[in-house]
Protein backbone atom coordinates (compact mmCIF):
# COMPACT_ATOMS: atom_id res chain seq x y z
CA UNK A 1 0.00 0.00 0.00
CA UNK A 2 2.86 2.36 0.85
CA UNK A 3 4.38 1.73 -2.58
CA UNK A 4 1.06 2.46 -4.32
CA UNK A 5 0.66 5.72 -2.42
CA UNK A 6 4.28 6.77 -3.11
CA UNK A 7 3.86 6.10 -6.82
CA UNK A 8 0.43 7.79 -6.88
CA UNK A 9 1.90 10.82 -5.16
CA UNK A 10 4.74 11.31 -7.60
CA UNK A 11 2.40 10.70 -10.54
CA UNK A 12 0.12 13.44 -9.25
CA UNK A 13 3.05 15.83 -8.78
CA UNK A 14 4.44 14.95 -12.20
CA UNK A 15 1.10 15.60 -13.91
CA UNK A 16 0.37 18.80 -12.05
CA UNK A 17 3.80 20.20 -12.88
CA UNK A 18 3.48 19.27 -16.50
CA UNK A 19 2.89 22.35 -18.62
CA UNK A 20 0.32 20.51 -20.69
CA UNK A 21 -1.80 20.04 -17.60
CA UNK A 22 -1.77 23.78 -16.94
CA UNK A 23 -2.70 24.45 -20.54
CA UNK A 24 -5.62 22.06 -20.30
CA UNK A 25 -6.88 23.54 -17.03
CA UNK A 26 -6.49 27.02 -18.44
CA UNK A 27 -8.34 25.93 -21.56
CA UNK A 28 -11.10 24.48 -19.40
CA UNK A 29 -11.41 27.70 -17.43
CA UNK A 30 -11.57 29.70 -20.65
CA UNK A 31 -14.29 27.43 -21.98
CA UNK A 32 -16.39 27.96 -18.89
CA UNK A 33 -15.84 31.70 -18.98
CA UNK A 34 -16.69 31.71 -22.67
CA UNK A 35 -19.93 29.96 -21.87
CA UNK A 36 -21.07 33.29 -20.45
CA UNK A 37 -21.17 34.56 -24.04
CA UNK A 38 -23.43 31.73 -25.03
CA UNK A 39 -25.51 32.38 -21.96
CA UNK A 40 -26.17 35.90 -23.22
CA UNK A 41 -27.59 34.39 -26.40
CA UNK A 42 -29.74 31.90 -24.54
CA UNK A 43 -32.80 34.06 -24.08
CA UNK A 44 -34.80 32.90 -21.09
CA UNK A 45 -32.80 29.68 -20.90
CA UNK A 46 -29.57 31.26 -19.70
CA UNK A 47 -29.25 29.15 -16.59
CA UNK A 48 -29.84 25.98 -18.53
CA UNK A 49 -27.22 26.94 -21.12
CA UNK A 50 -24.72 27.82 -18.42
CA UNK A 51 -25.36 24.59 -16.54
CA UNK A 52 -25.11 22.34 -19.59
CA UNK A 53 -22.13 24.06 -21.11
CA UNK A 54 -20.17 24.01 -17.87
CA UNK A 55 -20.84 20.37 -17.06
CA UNK A 56 -19.96 19.33 -20.61
CA UNK A 57 -16.78 21.42 -20.56
CA UNK A 58 -15.67 19.84 -17.29
CA UNK A 59 -16.21 16.37 -18.70
CA UNK A 60 -14.56 17.18 -22.01
CA UNK A 61 -11.53 18.65 -20.24
CA UNK A 62 -11.25 15.54 -18.10
CA UNK A 63 -11.53 13.27 -21.15
CA UNK A 64 -8.75 15.07 -23.01
CA UNK A 65 -6.52 15.13 -19.93
CA UNK A 66 -7.02 11.49 -19.04
CA UNK A 67 -6.37 10.38 -22.63
CA UNK A 68 -3.09 12.22 -22.93
CA UNK A 69 -1.96 11.48 -19.40
CA UNK A 70 -2.81 7.76 -19.55
CA UNK A 71 -0.95 7.41 -22.81
CA UNK A 72 2.08 9.21 -21.40
CA UNK A 73 1.89 7.26 -18.19
CA UNK A 74 2.84 3.97 -19.76
CA UNK A 75 3.97 4.64 -23.30
CA UNK A 76 6.26 7.60 -22.72
CA UNK A 77 7.67 6.12 -19.55
CA UNK A 78 8.64 2.94 -21.36
CA UNK A 79 10.08 4.83 -24.29
CA UNK A 80 11.99 7.26 -22.08
CA UNK A 81 13.21 4.42 -19.83
CA UNK A 82 12.35 6.26 -16.63
CA UNK A 83 10.54 3.07 -15.75
CA UNK A 84 13.82 1.18 -15.34
CA UNK A 85 14.73 2.80 -12.05
CA UNK A 86 11.31 2.01 -10.61
CA UNK A 87 10.95 -1.57 -11.78
CA UNK A 88 14.45 -2.42 -10.55
CA UNK A 89 13.30 -1.62 -7.01
CA UNK A 90 11.41 -4.08 -4.80
CA UNK A 91 8.08 -2.87 -6.22
CA UNK A 92 5.65 -5.24 -7.85
CA UNK A 93 4.42 -4.31 -11.29
CA UNK A 94 0.88 -4.39 -9.97
CA UNK A 95 1.68 -1.78 -7.34
CA UNK A 96 3.43 0.32 -9.91
CA UNK A 97 0.56 0.31 -12.39
CA UNK A 98 -2.14 0.83 -9.77
CA UNK A 99 -0.15 3.64 -8.18
CA UNK A 100 0.36 5.35 -11.53
CA UNK A 101 -3.32 5.02 -12.38
CA UNK A 102 -4.39 6.36 -8.99
CA UNK A 103 -2.06 9.34 -9.34
CA UNK A 104 -3.38 10.04 -12.82
CA UNK A 105 -6.97 9.99 -11.59
CA UNK A 106 -6.07 12.24 -8.67
CA UNK A 107 -4.60 14.78 -11.10
CA UNK A 108 -7.66 14.68 -13.36
CA UNK A 109 -10.09 14.89 -10.44
CA UNK A 110 -8.19 17.93 -9.13
CA UNK A 111 -8.63 19.66 -12.45
CA UNK A 112 -12.32 18.74 -12.53
CA UNK A 113 -12.76 20.06 -9.01
CA UNK A 114 -11.19 23.41 -9.87
CA UNK A 115 -13.37 23.80 -12.90
CA UNK A 116 -16.45 22.73 -10.95
CA UNK A 117 -15.75 25.39 -8.33
CA UNK A 118 -15.59 28.05 -11.00
CA UNK A 119 -18.70 26.72 -12.70
CA UNK A 120 -20.65 26.55 -9.44
CA UNK A 121 -19.65 30.13 -8.70
CA UNK A 122 -20.98 31.29 -12.05
CA UNK A 123 -24.20 29.37 -11.49
CA UNK A 124 -24.69 30.93 -8.05
CA UNK A 125 -24.11 34.34 -9.59
CA UNK A 126 -26.85 33.58 -12.13
CA UNK A 127 -29.36 32.55 -9.51
CA UNK A 128 -29.18 28.80 -10.08
CA UNK A 129 -30.79 26.69 -7.37
CA UNK A 130 -28.50 23.86 -6.38
CA UNK A 131 -29.76 20.42 -5.56
CA UNK A 132 -28.04 17.10 -4.91
CA UNK A 133 -28.26 16.52 -8.64
CA UNK A 134 -25.32 18.81 -9.35
CA UNK A 135 -22.64 17.02 -7.29
CA UNK A 136 -24.15 13.70 -8.33
CA UNK A 137 -23.83 14.62 -12.01
CA UNK A 138 -20.17 15.54 -11.41
CA UNK A 139 -19.55 12.33 -9.51
CA UNK A 140 -20.95 10.25 -12.35
CA UNK A 141 -18.86 12.21 -14.86
CA UNK A 142 -15.83 11.39 -12.74
CA UNK A 143 -16.87 7.72 -12.77
CA UNK A 144 -17.09 7.86 -16.57
CA UNK A 145 -13.59 9.31 -16.69
CA UNK A 146 -12.35 6.55 -14.38
CA UNK A 147 -13.57 3.92 -16.83
CA UNK A 148 -12.15 5.72 -19.84
CA UNK A 149 -8.85 6.24 -18.00
CA UNK A 150 -8.50 2.52 -17.45
CA UNK A 151 -9.37 1.89 -21.10
CA UNK A 152 -6.81 4.48 -22.21
CA UNK A 153 -4.17 2.83 -20.04
CA UNK A 154 -4.90 -0.54 -21.62
CA UNK A 155 -4.64 0.87 -25.15
CA UNK A 156 -1.38 2.61 -24.32
CA UNK A 157 0.11 -0.70 -23.16
CA UNK A 158 -1.37 -2.61 -26.07
CA UNK A 159 -0.37 -0.23 -28.82
CA UNK A 160 3.07 1.28 -29.25
CA UNK A 161 1.73 4.49 -30.75
CA UNK A 162 0.31 7.41 -28.81
CA UNK A 163 -1.94 8.48 -31.69
CA UNK A 164 -3.56 5.07 -32.05
CA UNK A 165 -4.00 4.77 -28.28
CA UNK A 166 -5.79 8.08 -28.09
CA UNK A 167 -7.86 7.30 -31.19
CA UNK A 168 -8.98 3.96 -29.80
CA UNK A 169 -9.88 5.55 -26.49
CA UNK A 170 -11.99 8.26 -28.12
CA UNK A 171 -13.65 5.62 -30.28
CA UNK A 172 -14.48 3.67 -27.12
CA UNK A 173 -15.97 6.83 -25.63
CA UNK A 174 -18.22 7.21 -28.65
CA UNK A 175 -19.22 3.53 -28.58
CA UNK A 176 -20.04 3.82 -24.91
CA UNK A 177 -22.51 6.61 -25.59
CA UNK A 178 -23.88 4.83 -28.61
CA UNK A 179 -24.72 1.68 -26.63
CA UNK A 180 -28.43 2.40 -26.46
CA UNK A 181 -28.61 2.94 -30.20
CA UNK A 182 -26.78 -0.38 -30.70
CA UNK A 183 -29.34 -2.10 -28.52
CA UNK A 184 -32.19 -0.47 -30.43
CA UNK A 185 -30.68 -1.53 -33.76
CA UNK A 186 -30.29 -5.06 -32.43
CA UNK A 187 -33.97 -5.16 -31.54
CA UNK A 188 -35.01 -3.88 -34.94
CA UNK A 189 -32.86 -6.10 -37.11
CA UNK A 190 -34.40 -9.42 -38.21
CA UNK A 191 -31.32 -11.54 -38.85
CA UNK A 192 -30.15 -13.61 -35.91
CA UNK A 193 -26.40 -13.07 -36.14
CA UNK A 194 -26.44 -9.24 -36.15
CA UNK A 195 -28.97 -9.43 -33.34
CA UNK A 196 -26.63 -11.52 -31.23
CA UNK A 197 -23.62 -9.35 -32.08
CA UNK A 198 -25.55 -6.20 -31.13
CA UNK A 199 -26.65 -7.72 -27.84
CA UNK A 200 -23.13 -8.85 -26.95
CA UNK A 201 -21.72 -5.46 -27.91
CA UNK A 202 -24.36 -3.75 -25.77
CA UNK A 203 -23.39 -5.70 -22.68
CA UNK A 204 -19.63 -5.84 -23.21
CA UNK A 205 -19.04 -2.21 -24.10
CA UNK A 206 -19.45 -0.04 -21.00
CA UNK A 207 -22.70 1.82 -21.32
CA UNK A 208 -21.62 5.36 -20.55
CA UNK A 209 -25.22 6.54 -20.63
CA UNK A 210 -25.51 5.12 -17.11
CA UNK A 211 -23.27 7.98 -15.99
CA UNK A 212 -24.89 10.73 -18.04
CA UNK A 213 -27.05 12.29 -15.34
CA UNK A 214 -26.28 15.75 -16.69
CA UNK A 215 -28.26 14.84 -19.82
CA UNK A 216 -31.24 13.61 -17.80
CA UNK A 217 -31.63 16.82 -15.84
CA UNK A 218 -35.18 17.66 -16.95
CA UNK A 219 -36.46 14.14 -17.46
CA UNK A 220 -39.73 13.96 -15.49
CA UNK A 221 -39.88 11.68 -12.49
CA UNK A 222 -36.29 10.52 -12.72
CA UNK A 223 -35.24 8.98 -9.43
CA UNK A 224 -31.72 7.82 -10.13
CA UNK A 225 -32.46 4.36 -8.76
CA UNK A 226 -29.88 2.87 -11.09
CA UNK A 227 -27.08 5.12 -9.86
CA UNK A 228 -25.70 3.03 -6.96
CA UNK A 229 -25.58 -0.04 -9.21
CA UNK A 230 -23.98 2.03 -11.98
CA UNK A 231 -21.27 3.25 -9.61
CA UNK A 232 -20.44 -0.31 -8.62
CA UNK A 233 -20.46 -1.31 -12.28
CA UNK A 234 -18.09 1.52 -13.12
CA UNK A 235 -15.67 0.35 -10.45
CA UNK A 236 -15.94 -3.28 -11.60
CA UNK A 237 -15.33 -2.35 -15.23
CA UNK A 238 -12.37 -0.15 -14.34
CA UNK A 239 -10.91 -2.97 -12.25
CA UNK A 240 -11.41 -5.37 -15.17
CA UNK A 241 -9.59 -3.03 -17.56
CA UNK A 242 -6.83 -2.56 -15.00
CA UNK A 243 -6.53 -6.35 -14.65
CA UNK A 244 -6.16 -6.58 -18.39
CA UNK A 245 -3.56 -3.81 -18.36
CA UNK A 246 -1.75 -5.57 -15.56
CA UNK A 247 -1.72 -8.83 -17.48
CA UNK A 248 -0.17 -7.04 -20.44
CA UNK A 249 2.27 -5.16 -18.23
CA UNK A 250 3.37 -8.22 -16.28
CA UNK A 251 4.33 -9.86 -19.54
CA UNK A 252 6.17 -6.86 -20.90
CA UNK A 253 9.92 -6.83 -21.19
CA UNK A 254 12.13 -3.78 -21.10
Amino acid sequence: MKNILSIARYTLIENIRNKIFYVLVFFGVIIIAASLLLVALGGEQQRRVLLDFGLAAIEFFALVTVCFAAVNLALEEMQSKTIYLVLTRPVSRAHYLIGRYAGLLAAVYSGMFLMALLHAGLLVFNGFEFTLRYPLALLLSAEKITIIGSVALFFSLFSSSAISSISFTVFFWVLGHFSEEIRYLGEKVTYVLPKIVAKIAYYVIPNLQYFNLRDFWDVPGITGSWIPAAIIYGILYSVACMTLSLWLFSNKEF
Binding site: Y10, I13, E14, R17, N18, S80, K81, T82, Y84, L85
Partner: peptide, 9 residues
Protein backbone atom coordinates in the same frame (compact mmCIF):
# COMPACT_ATOMS: atom_id res chain seq x y z
CA UNK B 1 21.86 2.24 -16.15
CA UNK B 2 24.19 3.53 -18.82
CA UNK B 3 22.09 6.64 -19.21
CA UNK B 4 19.84 7.15 -16.22
CA UNK B 5 16.45 8.66 -17.05
CA UNK B 6 14.53 10.46 -14.38
CA UNK B 7 11.17 12.18 -14.02
CA UNK B 8 11.97 15.66 -15.21
CA UNK B 9 9.40 17.49 -13.14
Amino acid sequence: PEVPYFYRY
